[in-house]
Design a protein around this nucleic acid. Structure first.
Lengths: 157, 157
DNA sequence: GACTTTATGACCTTTCTTGACCTTTGAATA
DNA sequence: TATTCAAAGGTCAAGAAAGGTCATAAAGTC
C-alpha cells in the first residue's frame, strides 16, 4: 500500500522536524541499508520530495566522508518573499509544481487549509484542459495574482 | 435488475458510511477483482455516481502505491449548495454575477473575506480574457468545483 | 427500432524501484 | 609529488505497479 518512497519521505521529515538547526546530515548508503533498498532510491525520494517548491535544499558531497545534507527553508515574511515566489513560479506552472508550492505555503501559514484546497481544486488539470489552451501559463499567472492579493493589508480585518 | 454498477456503488457507499474520517482509500485493481470486472468499470461507477453534485469528490494517484480516495461531502441540510451547483452546471457566469454571488456567500459566512477576495481576483475579466476562450463557462465550472470542495468534511482537520 | 446506460478491452500515462555503470573525494602508497 | 584505490554519492534506463481514457459492444428502456 503505502510505498517505500513515501515512508522514506516521512522518516526524513520526522527527523528534520526534530533538528534544531533546520537541517540534517546523513549518509545515502546507510539510509538505503536501513530501508533495505537501492541507494538510488534515496536520490529518487530527494529529487521528487525535497524540491525548492516544497521548501528544501539538498546538498551533498561524494567520496570518503561523503554525506547528504537536507535543509529546510524558512520563508521570511519581508517583501523578499514575493520576488522569490515570482522567480520560483516563472511563466509556467504545472499542476504538480503548483500543488507542491501550495502545500508549502500552507505549511508556512500563508494559506489556510481551506484556501489551499480551494486553489488546488481550481488548478486541477481536469478542470482546465478543455477550456484553456495553456493551463500552465494560467496557473502561473493566477498564482502570482493570488499571492499579491494575499499580501493586502486590509484582508484580515 | 441490480446491475454491476449499482452493486459497486452500493458497496462503496456502505463502507463510506462506516468511515469515521469521511473518506475511504482503496485500490482500483483490487476492487475490480473482488467484483470480477474490468478496472475501467470502477471509473465508470465513480464518474457517474460519485460526482460533486451527488456529494462526493474523488482523488487518485497512479503508479506504485497508487490509490483512489472517495470523499463524502459534508451535509448541506437546506440543499443550498446542491441547488447552487445545479444552477451553475453548463451555465455561464459573468464577472458581475460572480461577484454578486461571492459577496452573498461571504455574507452567509460560507466564504471568509480572504477567500472571497481570492476567488474574485481569479475571476477578474482581465485575468481571463486573453487565456480563456469562454471566461463565463470557466467561472461557472470553477465556482461549482469550489463549492463542492468547501463542503469537504476533512477541511478543518 | 431508437436511444440510453452499462460493461469490456486495448492502449496510455504516471509513479516507483532496482541495478548497472559513472564521478568525486581523500588517504595511502610508490 | 604523483599514482592508486577505496569509499562515498550521481545518473540513467528498464521494468513493475498502479490508475486513466476511449471506442465499441451488450443490455436495458420506451
Amino acid at each position: 500500500m503505502s510505498n517505500l518512497a513515501d515512508r522514506i519521505e516521512e522518516y526524513l521529515k520526522m527527523i528534520l522536524s526534530e533538528a534544531k538547526e533546520g537541517y540534517i546530515v546523513l549518509q545515502r548508503g546507510f539510509l538505503a541499508q536501513s530501508f533495505s533498498c537501492a541507494p538510488s532510491q534515496i536520490n529518487y525520494v530527494l529529487t521528487t520530495r525535497f524540491t525548492a517548491e516544497r521548501g528544501y535544499i539538498v546538498e551533498s558531497r561524494r567520496g570518503g566522508g561523503g554525506y547528504l545534507r537536507i535543509i529546510r527553508l524558512g520563508l521570511d515574511p519581508e517583501g523578499k518573499f514575493q520576488r522569490l515566489m515570482a522567480e520560483l513560479i516563472g511563466e509556467e506552472l504545472s499542476q504538480d509544481r503548483a500543488n507542491n508550492l501550495i502545500d508549502r505555503l500552507e505549511e508556512e501559514e500563508i494559506f489556510t487549509k481551506r484556501e489551499a484546497i480551494l486553489i488546488k481544486s481550481i488548478f486541477a488539470e481536469r478542470m482546465l484542459t478543455d477550456l484553456i489552451p495553456s493551463p500552465s501559463v494560467f496557473r502561473a499567472r493566477t498564482m502570482k495574482e493570488i499571492l499579491a492579493n494575499m499580501c493586502r493589508d486590509d484582508i484580515n480585518v
